[in-house]
Every structure is written in C-alpha cells, then in structure tokens.
Design a protein around this nucleic acid. Structure first.
Lengths: 158, 158
DNA sequence: CGTGAAAAATGTTTCGG
DNA sequence: CCGAAACATTTTTCACG
C-alpha cells in the first residue's frame, strides 16, 4: 500500500499516465510525439512509473456480459464482531472468491461493500450461502442488483 | 452493451482471457507456449476477442494513493423523481465527473451507487455540492469512506 | 536528459496444409 | 483454423551532445 504524495511527477509523467490509463497499447512512439518527447524518454518514464508503483498493473478489461457474467451485484455486509482476526478472515474469504470483483472495508453501519460478477441469481444465491451464512461473523447483508453499469473502471483523475 | 452468451469461446480463448486480464503485456509468444498454440494463433484470437467485444479495452491501473487520490468514497444516492430524462441527466452528470470512477444504477431504496477517487475530504465536500445539491433530482445521499480497498479490479471469472 | 541509429524483441502477414 | 517462415513494427540499448 503505497502512500507517497504525487509530487515527483512532472507534466510529462501525468500526460503519459492519462494516456496509458485509457489505452496502454498506444505505441510509445505515438505517446512521444503527442507530448513532445523522444520514444526512449517515454520508455524510461514508463519503466519508472511502474517500478515506483504509480502504475499498479496492466490489464485487459473484459465485457462481463459477453463473457457470461452479466449480473453485477452490490452487497452491503454488516459484521457481528469487529475483532481483527475475524475481520482478516472475512477479507481473506472475500479476496479469494473469484466472483468478488471488488471489496471495500468502510466506515458506517455497513462494514463491507462488495461488488460481484455472477452468471445469474442462482449462482448468487449459492454464493450467499458460502460467503455469508456459513462464512461466519456476518450479522446481516443487503443486496442491490445493478440494472445498468453506468460507468466502470473510469480513469483516476491525474 | 454487448449481450452474447459466452458460447463461441473455446478453452484456448478462455486461457488467453485469464492471462491478459491479469497482465496484458505478456508477450504473445509466452502465452502461446503456455497454452500450446503458435504465436500467430494467439494474435488472431486476441484480435477476434477485441473485435467481437469480449475485451472492452486495455488499460494501466494506477495506484490512486501514489497518484494523489488516496480517498475512496462510496456514495448512495436516492433520487427525487424517476422520470427517464431526469435519470439520464444524472447519469450524464456522474459519467462526466472525473472523480466518479464507477457508477451503478441499482434496484432498491437507493438508486445510484457511486465510487469516487478524491484527494481529500475538502474535495469531496465541494463535489457533493455540484454533484448532489446543485445537480438536481437528489432526494438524499449517504457517504461511506473506504478504510481499506481490500480488493480492486479483480478479474472476471471465466 | 534528449537524440539518432543499430540491435533485439515483439507483433503481423502470407501462404501451404 | 493452424503453423512455419518472411515481414513490419516496436522497444531497447548505447555512444554522443
């Protein structure tokens, strides 16, 4: 979990980040001429941005619908007990579950917010059993079904 | 918004998807030998997967903390009125806001769930003004601050 | 730190099965 | 559709300003 404040990034770095965040397959040559730098300079900066942890990873974003997981479900989970080891066990459980695409530990009445990618309601029902009922330390959970994923994986403003 | 059921994907395609979803900079040669195919075959399949919409895009995932947006905030928004044009206006507003990383239109009491990347609470406070108070059609909203992003950008199970 | 050119690696096209 | 080989592009390296 890096913590540095974005302070050693100049305008060139920011422009590179803005670009690769939207499309990381743009040739460095193209980025270079767009921002007025040489291709090797872009390469060096990209390498640094990755090594220094500004770029966490490079991925292909799938169309969940096309790939057979058309249902996005958002679940709010309230815990029974806030003991650290129990919380860690829950985080582990959520982390390891392939259908859990995102998991946040949050302030407020609800302790976890999960975003799931599932095939259908049947799969979700089965998941609730293993994840919440049998999993332990779950006081209650509330289910929201996404009718429309208005925005997904938007770029971080830099 | 693609809709096809994942039916014309064979095991090779799935293996390719599993790989690029975690790292799309793996050389096609490496993918090829991993799954027992030739590099051109992998290239052709990747091209098809993109053209056919299975792969939505290829991006670099930034470390929001390192890049100066350390705060993840999840907001639940309830609408005043469910008229279609008003809802569309809201979607537009959320979509265009750079700090809104994700936006879901959901069933239940709360109509929108937003995930924001912001610099600090001051920025969030200002955002709430333009996004919720002045934006219109917002009955109420509830704010959750993420204390830990336990899992982000998890792969879709394929 | 940028440049330019050579070298290495990667990606693409062609074409015969 | 695949794979092997030719081909094109991109990335990396390096000597130099």
């Amino acid at each position: 979990m890096a913590r540095s404040i974005a302070t050693d990034l100049d305008e060139f770095d920011l422009k590179i980040l803005r670009q690769v965040q939207v499309d990381n397959q743009t040739p460095q040559r193209v980025i270079a001429e767009k921002i007025g730098l040489s291709p090797p300079a872009v390469a060096r900066r990209l390498q640094h941005l990755k090594d220094a942890g500004y770029i966490r990873n490079n991925i292909a974003v799938l169309n969940e619908t096309a790939v057979g997981r058309p249902l996005t479900i958002i679940v709010h989970v309230a815990t029974e007990n806030e003991r650290l080891d129990l919380l860690d066990a829950m985080k582990d459980r959520f982390n390891r579950c392939p259908q859990v695409q995102q998991c946040y530990y949050v302030t407020g009445e609800m302790d976890f917010i999960l975003i799931l990618n599932v095939r259908d309601m049947t799969e979700y029902n089965e998941l609730t059993r293993t994840l919440f009922f049998e999993g332990g330390n779950v006081r209650s959970f509330r289910t929201c079904v996404s009718m429309e994923n208005v925005k997904t994986y938007g770029p971080v403003p830099v």
